[in-house]
């Protein structure tokens, strides 16, 4: 990694970060369209209909949106607010939407990171095993496991995991991120956090684990026949070395591509997993806002999570370039 390459990475980052702008604009347009098409006027929708909003709040919202003005002006208004990340105020939670989202963000990121770590590592192990023993018993067992895993609904898997591992066996806690009944610090706190993370992270990881296993298997099989592998064999490299250093390194590339493509879907999965395990993240917040009919908050989450997917995608691209020196920025 030379100096020029590192500065190229920074130039690339600067250019890519501009791509967040059209995403924000697009989602804002989409949100605005949904609000326009929804039954009732924008303020009725945003304030929910349970009647919890005070008349003053409704009047303030109507003024904010300039509902007496023509639609294009209203849209400009909306875009202006969104561009400054002013996502409005959540009446139900009595807090600005952005602040609510930022408070819940770390929990979701932690869950996603843990789940992806599990999925990538076990996917690599199972995929390599499968490819090394292609069409033999181990490969068949892994293939059937992958097939069934593809069909498991995440939320159902989570519920069944709670029944087995929390209720019947009593091994792991079934809800929350930490034990709130005791004040823990240092190592004990981390231990508690880890115990709470196991079930939700495994549940979220399962589907992606299956996807990566399959992907790595296909990629490895393709590379086993490639010229550079034959060269390595001719040089006398051991099979283990060929598998780990030659084929696997290249199999990581399609895996990264897939990971980048699936970020949105992982976030979607987190919504379900969080509501099953009462994990205090963005997904749980989305679920709460649906229950409370707090649509302003819900639309804010939609916008914020889309921006997050774009930003994470840029990160994936950078990692990709580190793995594959042929990539030009």
């Amino acid at each position: 990694m030379t100096q020029t390459r590192i500065s190229a990475v920074f130039r690339f980052l600067r250019r890519r970060l501009w791509q967040v702008v059209p995403v924000v604009f697009g989602i804002a347009l989409l949100n605005f369209l949904i609000l326009q098409l929804a039954p009732g006027d924008v303020v009725d929708v945003l304030a929910g209909e349970a009647g919890a909003a005070t008349p003053e709040y409704m009047a303030r919202l109507r003024a904010d949106f300039g509902l007496d003005k023509p639609v294009p002006v209203q849209f400009l208004h909306y875009i202006q607010h969104t561009a400054l990340l002013d996502l409005g105020f959540s009446f139900r939670q009595n807090m600005p939407v952005l602040q609510l989202i930022l408070e819940r963000l770390p929990a979701t990121l932690a869950l996603m990171t843990a789940a992806m770590g599990i999925a990538v590592i076990s996917g690599l192990i199972l995929g390599v095993l499968s490819a090394r023993h292609v069409h033999r018993a181990a490969d068949r067992v892994i293939s059937i496991f992958v097939l069934v895993t593809y069909a498991l609904p995440t939320f159902w898997l989570g519920l069944m995991a709670i029944v087995l591992f929390s209720a019947r066996l009593g091994w792991l806690p079934s809800s929350g991120m930490t034990d709130i009944s005791v004040e823990l610090t240092g190592f004990a706190y981390l231990r508690d956090l880890a115990k709470h993370t196991v079930l939700p992270a495994l549940t979220l990881a399962t589907f992606y684990l299956a996807v990566y296993t399959r992907l790595v298997r296909t990629a490895m099989l393709e590379y086993f026949g490639a010229d550079f592998i034959r060269t390595a064999r001719a040089k006398g490299a051991t099979e283990a070395r060929i598998t780990l250093f030659h084929a696997l390194r290249n199999a990581l590339l399609p895996l990264m591509t897939m990971l980048g493509l699936q970020l949105g879907s992982i976030l979607s999965g987190a919504v379900l997993v969080e509501s099953v395990f009462s994990w205090p993240g963005l997904g749980r917040l989305a679920f709460e806002s649906v229950l409370a009919r707090d649509f302003n908050l819900l639309l804010g989450i939609l916008l914020f999570s889309s921006v997050m997917v774009t930003v994470l995608n840029i990160c994936v691209d950078v990692v990709y370039a580190f793995l594959d020196p042929r990539i030009e920025f």
């Binding site: 995403v23 949105g264 879907s265 649906v290 819900l298 889309s306 997917v309």
Partner: peptide, 24 residues
């Protein structure tokens, strides 16, 4: 293609939740 990319960036299940919740 821009529109398609936009719809691929949005977390799909979250968008489905938003649509169903708002349109009853």
């Amino acid at each position: 293609m821009r529109v398609t990319e936009l719809f691929q960036t949005v977390p799909q299940f979250v968008l489905a939740v938003v649509l169903v919740a708002i349109f009853k």
